[in-house]
């Protein structure tokens, strides 16, 4: 079985990990309650999507 010949240096480890970046969440504005909401999803604050209400989508402050 192939195994690493050398220990990976701190420098290499860190330079590899420096590229792990978080992306900002893509958000749009809900047309009904004008709160930020993910696109193509029922709004988590008012539960509306394309004129229909989905109670299952609603999230309280603690659940979000």
């Amino acid at each position: 079985m192939a195994v690493p010949k050398r220990k990976t240096s701190r420098s290499n480890t860190r330079s590899r990990r420096a590229n792990w970046k978080a992306l900002p969440a893509v958000l749009t504005t809900c047309p009904r309650c004008s709160k930020p909401t993910p696109p193509h999803q029922a709004c988590p604050s008012c539960g509306m999507y394309k004129g229909r209400h989905f109670a299952e989508a609603e999230r309280t402050e603690h659940q979000a």
Partner: peptide, 16 residues
């Protein structure tokens, strides 16, 4: 099918 937010616990994307 309408997507709703991810599930708490395993963050699985949920839908109705």
């Amino acid at each position: 099918i309408v997507k709703i937010g991810p599930r708490k616990g395993d963050n699985a994307p949920m839908a109705v």
